[in-house]
Every structure is written in C-alpha cells, then in structure tokens.
C-alpha cells in the first residue's frame, strides 16, 4: 500500500524565518497521524508544501503517491484541508459557503454535509462575519470532511473549539479512520495527539526529532508538578530524584533558594511519579498541582540529547537549581 504522505529531504528556506530542514516523513494510509511541535516549528509550512500552496526549496513530497508539484490538482481533489488560520468569506452565510465549496468540488453528498452539520451543531443560516471563532472553525471542519476525502489534513483543528465540540471532533476523526481515510493533524498540545493519533511525529525548529507510536509514548508521560511547602526545603533534595528532568524554585529569603531553601518548587517529571511523591512526603506540603507541561519541556524530557542547545540549558537549570524569579 502506498503511504498517504511521504516526504524526502523536504526543505523550505525562507529569508529570515525558519522553514523546514530535510524533513523525511512517512504517514501510513488509513491511520491517524499527529504532527506535533511548538508554534513556529514548521508544521504549517510542511502542510502548505503538501498542498502546493508553497514550493519546497529542495526535496519532494508525495501525497497519496502523487507528486505534490506535478499532480497538485489530483491531490487536492482527494484531500480535505482545514487551515490553521482559517479565513472565510464574511458576506456569505454558512450555507452559501458550503454550497460554494461543494460546487468547487463538483458537488458533494448533501446528506453527509447535513449529518456533519448536525453532529457539530452548526447553524448555517448566519453570515460568516457574525459567527464566533468556534462556529467558524466548525464550518472549516465540515468543509474538510464533506467530500469524504482519502486524506484529511488538519492544521491545529481543535483551537477555538469548546470541549463538547472537541469531543465530537475526535469521534469524526475516529470514524474517518474506521472508514479507511487517513487523517494528518498538526497540534502543539501532546494530550490531544495522544487522544486521537496512532502515530506522532515530533518537529522542532524545522527538523524532525522523532516518530513514535502513541501507545508507547503514553507510558512515558511527562508532567509538570508545582508544590508549595509550609517551610523552606533544600532544593538539592529533589535534584537527584529519578524521573525529575527539570527543576526550578522560588526562594524564601535573601541569598535565593539555594542558600535559604525553597518555599515552592516546579518539577518536570518523566515516567512514574512514585519517587517524587515519596520524596515530597518527607516535607510538609501545602499545595500540589500537576499539569501537562509545555511542549518544550516534553522535548527536553524525551529527547534531551537530541534537541541541542535547549538540552544544555535544561541541564544547567537542573544542576544549579537556580530560581528564575528570585529577587
């Protein structure tokens, strides 16, 4: 079976901006593939090359086995696309927008469009200019799915969607996958990708860092933990705890936390939390919050040695246990 997407040494250089560098990607047909990276990592650039909206500086991309440059028209016929920065025609209503887009595809199954509309609870009567961001995104999703394309390319699809609609969106993606369609979605939040994707590619500063199976990834979850203590604790007590990949502290008095001890700590922990929890139990904890870390920390935790200078910075932070916010 041909790969739904395959890029070979795909490079796009802009003058000042970072583009993508030597991207080699393979997306199996019939799967949901996540394309994860911080904002500005090159996700949108890659997607725009796939759809021939911009042209690669070197390398090439095959979409559904077709060359992105030579067979652009055939590719677009078989793809659905939701841009990250979605702009629509303000003077058209939702209904008119969908009719226009359907006409551009030479007609689509109106029953399917109606079903999508109902499932996303989209009111097509209003002018696009009067729609909220969330409703505009719904319209964008409907047009991407409405012709049951073989490949659906979604750039940050859940931005601006409320949780209920997000949930319905995940169902749509799963169903598309069950129907044999391929979904390629970009995101800058790991949990979303973990929720819907089977495979995920990590991209950072235009370079592919790794491609992983999501099932494997989940066992190595990274969390950020914030703890405040009743009395200052020695920062060094947490530096060597297994799983802790980054650490920063807020001090209590003069000389910073290194000298006087820390009243609060921020820890990034990869893998099981057990060792950290046991160490924390030795002190008097006032509050404890745990949340998904930002992607940069995930990269550090997973691929510290592969992400260059940022890894060095992280190591520095860990070694000194310094406090960025100390007076």
């Amino acid at each position: 079976m041909t790969a739904a997407i395959r890029t070979e040494g795909l490079t796009k250089s802009y003058g000042r901006h970072r583009g993508i560098v030597g991207l080699g990607l393979e997306v199996e047909a019939g799967h949901v593939f996540g394309f994860l990276g911080p904002n500005g990592a090159g996700k949108t650039t890659t997607i725009r090359v796939l759809l021939d909206l911009i042209r690669p500086t070197s390398g090439r991309a095959l979409v559904l086995g077709l060359d992105s440059r030579r067979d652009a028209l055939a590719i677009r016929r078989r793809c659905g696309y939701l841009p990250g920065e979605l702009n629509l025609y303000g003077r058209l209503t939702g209904e008119e927008t969908l009719r226009y887009f359907a006409n551009l595809r030479g007609g689509v199954d109106p029953g399917h469009v109606r079903r999508l509309r109902e499932r996303l609870d989209f009111d097509p009567g209003k002018k696009v200019a009067e729609l909220s961001t969330g409703n505009r995104r719904k319209l964008g999703l409907i047009q991407a799915f409405m012709h049951r394309p073989e490949l659906i390319v979604l750039d940050e699809p859940t931005v601006g969607l409320d949780p209920l609609v997000q949930h319905e969106f995940y169902h749509l993606v799963e169903e598309a996958c069950d129907a044999g369609q391929t979904v390629f979605l970009s995101s800058h939040v790991l949990p979303e990708v973990q929720r819907v994707c089977e495979q995920v590619a990590f991209i950072r500063e235009g370079e592919l860092v790794a491609v992983e199976d999501v099932a494997e990834l989940t066992g190595r979850a990274v969390r950020e933990i914030e703890v405040t203590f009743a009395a200052p604790v020695p920062v060094a007590a947490f530096a060597g705890v297994p799983g802790v990949t980054a650490l920063s502290a807020d001090g209590a008095g003069a000389g910073g936390p290194a000298a006087s001890g820390a009243l609060s700590l921020r820890l990034t922990v990869a893998g099981p939390l057990d060792a950290v929890v046991k160490r924390l139990a030795e002190f008097q904890v006032v509050t404890l919050t745990s949340r998904e870390p930002d992607l940069e920390d995930v990269f550090l935790a997973f691929y510290g040695e592969r992400v260059g200078h940022a890894a060095a910075e992280g190591a520095g932070r860990l070694a000194s246990g310094e406090a960025g916010d100390a007076p």
Partner: peptide, 14 residues
C-alpha cells in the same frame, strides 16, 4: 490578504 486564498487553492482549482 483576506487569508481566504490558501483554502480556495486547496480545492481542485488550478
């Protein structure tokens, strides 16, 4: 400049 061209040209239209 309105930002609608990218989506339009992702349709089967040369």
């Amino acid at each position: 400049e309105d930002g609608t061209l990218g989506l339009l040209l992702a349709y089967p239209l040369t």
